[in-house]
Nucleic acid binder design. Structure first.
Lengths: 230, 230
DNA sequence: GAGCGTTGTTCCCACATAGATACAACCCCG
DNA sequence: CGGGGTTGTATCTATGTGGGAACAACGCTC
């Protein structure tokens, strides 16, 4: 059971999605909307219709010429390339959040200041963004493994000297190394242990192994609380 | 033009999405599939059909009783509540990535080790995950503003003592404070300045103002490179 | 000027999704 | 023992999305 998504960029009511990006990219490589459509196994009429819908919303995307050498052809505008680049970044970020592991902590909101909440969990207090959980007391806090930074306790920054508001002391419980990225679980004295994804070079530099004392920190603005079901 | 998404959890070919979550939640509050369906303005037949599809894939979600006091009724199983909780966390994370600002840096891959790439940008070298940009030299790197941690330069951790591989020295260019969260732009000597989202209490503690020297750091595993269009 | 392969336009059809309706089965309760 | 409101089941219909085909318009090239 794994997470998935469909990303889109919305402008003026229409949503530019992955199939639209595919269409634009294929027009770019084929040089014509006609060839792009049947390279993708789509109908020409639908492809043109979709393209004009998009252009009505976001402006010119494809410079189309009918007639001329070879009968004509189509070429992407600079705006189309920018759009594709932005969509690709969006996709990359989404796949990251879809695939990254997270540690889930359950707790209660004890204070709230704007969309920033202070949550009491069995691992201790932490601060997290709680945008839509308005008024909910019982919350679940998800800590993305790629947002957790590990520090050498001897050289960890003082609490006032960094903008990482959440800080837990603990010991390494396990290190699982892959090619360039390692999964480190840190026992922070709670039922659930904190998972951090770090580079293998960080594992070396910090000398991480089972039992190594570490300080784990993560930013409040990178942590999200949502209402707990039931 | 803003980013959007449709999240889902896939199991055994079927995708549990937002409308499914809405259905389950309404069954929970209404006590019956029948009332849930027309509270949502959906047809009963389709709702039941969808529910059985989901249950074939993920197991029992709703304990349904036909006949009995009040004619019967339906109740969520614990598995359904877990599923809802997980979906809500997923949604929260996705909305975070959809809404967060990011700094885009363009550069070239100069080294690669597994999915970890070293990228040369005009702001300097940085390390980022580059999963799908296989072999691409020209890349764009997106740095999420909520993953950037700011440090007091006098008390910034030594480079070897933290797992945050990317570190830039700079000066605060602007501070925009909202209710509990502030947007800090940091000039790191590049064309594009780095944007960080931090809490307003961090702004106070670090004494951030225009011109304040800071160290900005972010993890390689929280940064993603994708191929550059063209 | 004819040929050619485009873009643009129009109309029809296939298919999947979901609403509408009818009806059987069920079982507590008064 | 019947009423009531539910869960199941079957069938028909509306609707939206996209494919297919036909044809006009276009402009470079030979």
């Amino acid at each position: 059971m794994d997470a998935g998504f469909e990303a889109h960029l919305r402008a003026d009511g229409v949503e530019f999605d992955a199939t639209d990006a595919e269409l634009l990219r294929t027009i770019d490589s084929e040089g014509s909307l006609n060839r792009a459509a049947d390279a993708l196994g789509r109908s020409y009429s639908r492809s043109l219709q979709r393209l004009t819908e998009l252009e009505e919303a976001v402006g010119p995307l494809v410079a189309r010429q009918r007639g001329g050498s070879g009968g004509g052809g189509s070429e992407l505008t600079d705006e189309a390339r920018d759009l594709l680049a932005r969509f690709q970044r969006l996709r990359a970020e989404f796949t990251g959040t879809a695939e990254v592991e997270e540690t889930v902590l359950f707790g209660r909101v004890v204070a709230r200041e704007g969309e920033l909440a202070t949550v009491e969990t069995d691992a201790g207090r932490l601060r997290a963004l709680a945008p839509d959980s308005d008024g909910a007391e019982a919350v679940q806090v998800a800590v993305r493994a790629d947002t957790v930074t590990l520090h050498d306790p001897g050289d960890a920054p003082a609490e006032v000297a960094t903008s990482a508001r959440n800080r837990f002391e603990g010991r390494v419980a396990a290190v699982g190394e892959a090619e360039a990225v390692a999964r480190v679980t840190v026992d922070v004295g709670a039922e659930e242990s904190l998972v951090a994804i770090v580079t293998t070079s960080s594992v070396e530099k910090l000398g991480l192994a089972d039992g190594t004392p570490v300080v784990a920190s993560f930013k409040a603005t990178a942590t999200r609380a949502s209402p707990r079901e039931r």
